[in-house]
Design a protein around this nucleic acid. Structure first.
Length: 256
DNA sequence: ATGGTGGCACCGCCA
């Protein structure tokens, strides 16, 4: 079984890239973030004959999440269980007793802003959601654009970037609470190398070519899933295409 | 402090 997550930065502008990627990689599940489309404009027709079941929740211009699955998605819920639910940032679904949660965590703007506080609150509310609804012994995969680089090796210049809304000690401490509860970073289970990133900022020149990136996209699994995880890697090929997203997919393979 | 780009919506906002 193969599971993937990808921040597409607009599903309408990258429909063909996603379709091609599904055909080439045949993941059992693909979670998308930043679809940037309200539900009535979601390009459902384009995926109607893809062989995938899919669910989505979006809003105009910003955010938006989706899950594609070869097996039928069940027990679908949108958003957190506290207000604001932020439905366009979270979907929960299950397949054969495997719980899949995808999130697009708020970016935070800058640390002194209310948006950053909202981000921290969002993480804490999500942790409460996990604690309330699940046990660490349940089969859970939580994946998406988590907008956190957990360790120094998850950014290209930790000295300069310390204090950024996606890389600072306070944020890493919040993220660590998920690890302490029982989530395992499946990429790091298999690869401890530096220089492994899933995001390269468009706003500076040649970030991808110079590998000035960030690892912001994760597949987190509870122990029963980590035990079954054969490999987890970052697929840079979509980032080499003509009109790439600023993110690239992360994939995990399981012996299931 | 986040911008040199890119996406969307609508002539600025968000990453």
């Amino acid at each position: 079984m193969k599971i993937a997550t990808f921040n597409v930065n607009s599903i309408r502008s990258r429909t063909q890239i996603i379709l091609d990627w599904l055909v080439e990689n045949k993941p059992d599940v693909l979670c998308l973030q930043e679809t940037k489309v309200q539900d009535k404009d979601f390009p459902s027709e384009a995926f109607a004959f893809s062989g995938y079941d899919f669910v989505y929740r979006g809003e105009k211009s910003y955010n938006g999440v989706a899950i594609f699955s070869l097996k039928k998605l069940e027990n679908i819920e949108f958003g957190l269980d506290s207000e604001p639910k932020d439905e366009a940032r979270m979907i929960k679904a299950s397949i054969d007793g495997l719980n899949i949660i995808t999130t697009y965590i708020p970016q935070g703007f800058f640390v002194e802003s209310e948006k950053y506080q909202y981000k921290l609150d969002w993480f804490n509310r999500l942790l409460e959601y996990f604690k309330k609804n699940y046990k660490p012994t349940d089969k859970i995969l939580w994946m998406g654009d988590l907008n956190v680089a957990y360790e120094a090796k998850d950014v290209h210049d930790p000295k300069r970037l310390e204090g950024h809304v996606c890389f600072n000690k306070e944020l890493s401490a919040v993220f660590k609470k998920f690890i302490d509860w029982g989530f395992i970073d499946l990429f790091r289970k298999h690869c401890s190398d530096e220089g492994q990133y899933s995001f390269w900022d468009y706003r500076m020149p040649k970030t991808f070519e110079r590998n000035r990136g960030w690892r912001l996209d994760y597949i987190m699994g509870t122990e029963p899933m980590a035990d079954k995880c054969l490999n987890c890697w970052i697929d840079k090929k979509p980032r080499m295409l003509e009109k790439p997203s600023d993110h690239t997919p992360v994939i995990a393979e399981f012996k299931i």
